[in-house]
Design a protein around this nucleic acid. Structure first.
Length: 285
DNA sequence: AGCATTTGACCTGC
DNA sequence: GCAGGTCAAATGCT
């Protein structure tokens, strides 16, 4: 797991630092912009939106580098685990040897880079595959586990956990862990307009929801994987920003209403949520 | 038949 | 030892 070559680690570190420094500079510019909105502007001065996009891009790049480094380590771990018990000298605890059955054999990820979101649906702009569900102690509702549908073909490490909120069973608490390193996983990005209420994009639209989709609050396992390769709303229409991974975060800036009950919740993970502009995205390494 | 979901097994971290 | 997270066989659905 720690067998990365020093050159590789160093290059990654430099890259991360470069991205973060750039992000910090943009944040400083943004701060100045807020402090002095009517200050001197010329055509070369980036707008607040551009600065936000740059900052998020910096974070995304840094995360991408970090996660790819982790992935390297994981490959090593897997290759070690793939050795048979005889080869590794490990005596299996399981009674039936069935070397094929590797259920539960995994590297538990750290709770790094987590974000939480509360919404009326467990769906979002990404495609997810459910891989597990667990009853949680002292919780009425089970927790569902989802991974990115691109996990296998693109090695995307993004996962999310969804659980109904006891105090408000119509609402879902979603914990996103990791960031999407995949491409083309965005379902059907929709422009969030000024008039657009947050529910309008959290809820499935007529065009992308199945006809009988009214079970979102009643079924414990609503439709998760829905392949609607809708490409008629290119991200470039939304902004000049090119990184699709950024937009969930930008859209989350719009979130504020569903979070009133948050102080009643006791999350088990380090988290922060979207009160306004700068609390939703929480990164932790 | 192929793919997605369910569910029990089993591993990790505390 | 326990709770939670992940895996993969079994099952269901299209």
């Amino acid at each position: 797991m720690s067998a990365l070559c020093p050159e590789h680690v160093s290059a990654n570190k430099e890259s991360i630092i470069r991205e973060l420094v750039e992000g910090k500079e943009c944040a400083s510019q943004l701060k100045l912009l807020f402090q002095n909105p009517s200050g001197p502007h010329d055509t070369t001065t980036p707008s607040a939106q551009q600065l936000v996009a740059k900052i998020l891009r910096s974070f995304a790049q840094s995360i991408s580098v970090l996660t790819s480094s982790e992935a390297d380590g994981e490959i090593l771990a897997i290759s070690c685990n793939d050795r048979s018990p005889e080869e590794s000298g490990e005596s299996s605890k399981r009674s039936p040897p069935s070397a094929k059955d590797r259920r539960g054999c995994y590297n538990r990820r750290k709770a790094a880079d987590t974000r939480t979101k509360i919404s009326q649906t467990m769906e979002d702009e990404y495609e997810w595959r459910k891989y597990g569900q667990k009853e949680i102690l002292n919780s009425k509702f089970p927790r569902s586990y989802f991974r990115c549908t691109r996990k296998h073909d693109q090695g995307c490490k993004a996962v999310k956990q969804v659980q109904r909120i006891e105090e408000n069973p119509e609402m879902f608490l979603t914990i996103y862990i990791g960031v999407h390193t995949c491409k083309d996983n965005l379902k059907a990005p929709e422009m969030v307009t000024d008039s657009g209420h947050w529910e309008s994009y959290l809820a499935p639209t007529e065009s992308n929801k199945p006809p009988d989709d009214d079970q979102k609050a009643s079924s414990s396992t609503p439709t998760v994987k829905q392949e609607y390769p809708k490409e008629d709303t290119p991200l470039s229409e939304i902004t000049d920003n090119s990184d699709p991974n950024l937009w969930p975060d930008l859209k989350d800036f719009e979130l504020s209403e569903p979070l009133k009950m948050l102080d009643k919740l006791d999350f088990g993970v380090d988290q922060s949520v979207g009160f306004g502009t700068d609390h939703y995205l929480h990164l932790e390494y």
